[in-house]
């Protein structure tokens, strides 16, 4: 009876017209993508709060604070806009409506594209934090505003990376889906598409963490503009390490889409499909590493601003700590690879 339930569900779905099924999946994907709106809301709210507080403390700097806050908040909006664009594509100009291939795969890809875009909420929260810190710093150190704005924008641009990678995966799923031409069970391939989309959620953590580092860097350069070079270097390196789990998530998503070993294995279809899905779900665990490593990067940046002469000791300690914080992200990668390449249940 249990297996009949899944077969019955598929039969129920397949009893509808192909176009109807894809349209149904597309609206679900559009809705999921818009959950990314959580990020800009939180981030921009933080920026506005910090801005209001800064104006209260330094009312004569109102203009500079407001312009920095608005600029930073506008960058924090990016992921929300990208999610909106993908949602609108899914609703109004869906390339999948005319795609040829298994209807389950195409439907799964539409939903997965939406899920992938959801990860934009991470970068937005981080970028909003950076905007708030920058606005606060401009209030106390108005003459260093160009440096603060510069470092805020640079840090925010780096924090956007995982959001961009998620967009890339979503666009591949929509416009150049490699899964539709793979020979294999539709259920497995559908789970593969969903797994690839879900894996990209791991990018939420790096976004938040990198944004925190950007905010700390903007604040540090406002207080010690002469240490700008050291601050920038530590920020960029710290952010790069904080991004690792987001990159590993991308690796798993690409393996799932372009070389899924589960697609042509003999075995129980339901286990294979579940493994493909779980390989992606596992990578969500990387969120923690990203946030934590970003916090370490932020604190290292702060310390570098005060004591640039001991930069190498600060960086070294940051690296050691970040490497330990990365451990669970690596576990996630290992479980994901085991599920795909040496799954004991097959």
């Amino acid at each position: 009876m249990e297996t009949d339930f899944i077969q019955a569900s598929i039969d129920f779905i397949m009893s509808y017209d192909t176009k109807v099924i894809i349209a149904c999946a597309s609206v679900l994907g559009a809705g999921l993508a818009m959950i990314a709106g959580i990020g800009p809301g939180i981030g921009q709210g933080f920026a506005a709060g910090k801005g209001a507080q800064a104006i209260g403390d330094n009312p004569e700097q109102g203009k500079g604070i407001t312009s920095t806050m608005l600029l930073g908040a506008a960058v924090a909006e990016t992921s929300g806009i990208l999610a909106l664009v993908v949602a609108l594509i899914l609703i109004f100009a869906n390339p999948l409506m005319n795609a040829t291939g298994g209807v389950l795969i195409i439907g799964g890809s539409a939903i997965a594209a939406g899920i992938s875009m959801l990860s934009g909420l991470g970068p937005s929260i981080g970028q909003g934090y950076a905007a708030g810190k920058a606005a606060e710093t401009v209030g106390t150190n108005p003459k260093n505003k160009p440096h603060v704005t510069m470092l805020m924008l640079m840090g925010q641009a780096v924090a956007q990376t995982t959001g961009i990678l998620a967009l890339v995966i979503a666009l591949i799923l929509l416009y150049a889906n490699p899964l539709v031409s793979v020979k294999g069970e539709f259920l497995i391939l559908m789970a593969t598409a969903l797994g690839a989309g879900i894996a990209m959620l791991g990018g939420i953590g790096p976004g938040i963490g990198q944004g925190y580092a950007a905010g700390k860097a903007a604040a540090a350069v406002g207080v010690n503009p002469k240490n700008k070079k050291n601050i920038t270097v530590v920020m960029l390196v710290g952010q790069a390490v904080a991004q690792t789990t987001g990159i590993l998530a991308l690796v798993i998503a690409l393996i799932l889409m372009y070389g899924n070993p589960l697609a042509d294995v003999d075995g129980s279809i339901i286990i294979l499909a579940a493994s493909a899905l779980a390989a992606g779900i596992s990578m969500v665990g990387g969120i923690g590493s990203g946030v934590g490593q970003g916090y370490a990067a932020g604190k290292a940046v702060e310390a570098t601003g005060i004591r640039p002469d001991v930069q190498s000791s600060i960086t070294r300690t940051m690296f050691l700590g970040q490497a330990v914080a990365q451990t669970t992200g690596i576990y996630a990668l290992i479980v994901s690879l085991i599920l795909m390449y040496s799954n004991p249940f097959l």
Binding site: L165, L248, L333, I334
Partner: peptide, 28 residues
């Protein structure tokens, strides 16, 4: 075991960071 895995993960993350960014730009 964690130290060994961590050591092996370095070249993977190093190469994919560059590759992912450049390929992402190319696709977009």
């Amino acid at each position: 075991p964690i130290n060994i895995i961590g050591e092996l993960a370095n070249p993977i993350s190093l190469s994919f960071r560059l590759f992912g960014n450049m390929l992402g730009g190319l696709i977009i």
